[in-house]
């Protein structure tokens, strides 16, 4: 039995031939295509007539890009600018995916693991590639071997497991949050229907869940984005460098303590 979710797109999908719609069309994927088209349209509208004194949509995009740039510089380091295209795309894409279910008649594509796992795999591949690019093949392998070289038989399996667990936890976190949110919303709507059947008072019980959804969607998008940045930082810095940074931090603290005195 083909599982169906309430969406206006079902009517369009049903017009396709049977063999196509059962094997190639997933309603979540169609919704994500709509999000992609929407984002492309917004980007095109924002950059169509660029002015030196930005107004309207161009202003929004410039603020967004500026924010992502400063975030990457702060989190990843001075070299973080080259990760801006991927990370910025991921944030705005997941944000729109998460909030798309709030538009009546559409569904949240991120409530399936099929949607979130590919995003996490993209981040995983990018993290590994940027690790190789930043440290070289030897440095990348030494990253897995760890600091005392004679502990390599223990360190390598631990590090490999950790690297595989990162995208899995990214995907499952986003999927679980969105799926839980949507399930709670459906249950509350069903409760509202039950109340209506018993008392004939229409009462929107799911209202508070919709408000919560507005809060959780952006937060989860930000978390996916921030954790991706943190993973990139972990993969592209030497383990020795962190000690330097800690030393610098202590130095700063000592300085500020002196100033306070």
């Amino acid at each position: 039995m083909h599982e169906e979710h309430g969406s206006w797109l079902n009517a369009i999908v049903h017009m396709l031939p049977e063999s196509v719609q059962h094997h190639y069309v997933d309603i979540f994927v169609v919704n994500s295509w709509l999000v992609i088209i929407l984002l492309v349209l917004l980007a095109w509208l924002g950059t169509r007539r660029r002015q030196r004194k930005p107004a309207g949509l161009q202003n929004v995009w410039e603020m967004y890009v500026e924010w992502v740039r400063s975030f990457c510089r702060k989190e990843i380091g001075p070299d973080g600018e080259k990760h801006v295209p991927l990370l910025g795309t991921i944030f705005v894409y997941i944000l729109f995916l998460n909030l798309f279910g709030l538009v009546p008649g559409f569904i949240t594509p991120t409530m399936t693991l099929n949607m979130t796992l590919p995003l996490a795999v993209v981040v995983f591949l990018w993290v590994q590639w940027s690790g190789v690019a930043a440290l070289g093949v030897g440095g990348y392998i030494m990253h897995f071997v760890g600091q005392p070289v004679w502990l390599a038989p223990i360190n390598i399996p631990v590090h490999v497991t950790g690297e595989i667990a990162k995208p899995l936890s990214l995907a499952i976190r986003l999927f679980g949050n969105m799926f839980g949110e949507e399930t709670a919303l459906v249950q509350m709507a069903a409760l509202g229907a039950t109340i209506f059947a018993a008392t004939y008072i229409p009462f929107p019980v799911q209202f508070i869940n919709v408000a919560l959804h507005l809060l959780v969607g952006p937060i989860q998008a930000f978390i996916f984005f921030a954790l991706s940045a943190a993973y990139i930082k972990m993969a592209t810095t030497h383990e020795g460098e962190e000690h330097h940074e800690e030393g610098a931090g202590e130095h700063d603290e000592a300085q500020s303590a002196e100033q306070a005195v």
């Binding site: 936890s169 499952i172 976190r173 679980g176 949050n177 799926f179 839980g180 399930t183 937060i219 989860q220 930000f222 978390i223 921030a226 954790l227 943190a230």
Partner: peptide, 23 residues
Amino acid sequence: RGTLIISLALIESLVIYVLLAFF
């Protein structure tokens, strides 16, 4: 605030795993 949000998310994700196991 940034660190807090990330660490809250990491703690929260464990509950989400249990929620999935619950379902």
